[in-house]
Write a protein that binds this DNA or RNA. Structure first.
Lengths: 106, 106
DNA sequence: CAGTATCCCCCTAGATACTG
DNA sequence: CAGTATCTAGGGGGATACTG
């Protein structure tokens, strides 16, 4: 048969993946990071209507999941850059597929 | 450039797509419906550790988003079948990509 | 079998203000 | 510039019991 069945009672890969990128602003943030490294405020502008608190929170989760890299330059004023990690870059096909689907079917 | 930028302040396609499939049990439910039409309890077993209340709720949302079809046979005992709609079937590449990513990178 | 009906907790997420 | 700190509302989500 074409699709194998999974016992999701103790971890399903689809569920696991969505837990990583399904946060309210995570997908959009990751998507915009496909363009390249961005500073905090740049990313905030791109993501749009998000509060600082929430963006910071979601970025920290993405970081601790190893999907993005946060680089701090110890200067005044602060300079922080976000970029996709190797692992984060593997999400590219998914993010582009989500974008295309969103454009076509929503 | 490879990726166009989107103003997400009033609707971003990635965000829109994730709003449809990002619910806690939606991805898994959709994924299992790739296998074909299922009855309620069958789907519930497949999805795993979900309560009836939540599964019903998420299925109703998927239905009102036009991603799944709910067919009720007016018999006793009740018989209800769920299946992917045309639109829902367009999610197949995304669901498979999520599964593959989840298997490899989580 | 395939749901409702209740009750309730807690976490998500927003608003606002403050800061190294 | 890139964040904390604090407070708060709202609803997502669980447990349990009941039903046509």
């Amino acid at each position: 048969m074409r699709f194998e069945s999974y016992d999701c009672s103790r971890g399903c890969p689809v569920e696991a993946a969505l837990e990583r990128i399904g946060g309210k602003w995570k997908g959009v943030a990751l998507y915009h990071l496909l363009e390249g490294t961005k500073r905090y405020n740049e990313l905030k502008r791109d993501v749009g209507n998000v509060t600082q608190r929430m963006l910071t929170k979601q970025l920290r989760e993405l970081e601790s999941d190893g999907l993005i890299v946060r680089k701090v330059y110890p200067v005044v004023p602060p300079h922080v850059e976000y970029s996709l990690s190797e692992k984060g870059r593997t999400l590219e096909p998914i993010l582009l597929a989500l974008r295309d689907w969103g454009e076509s079917y929503v």
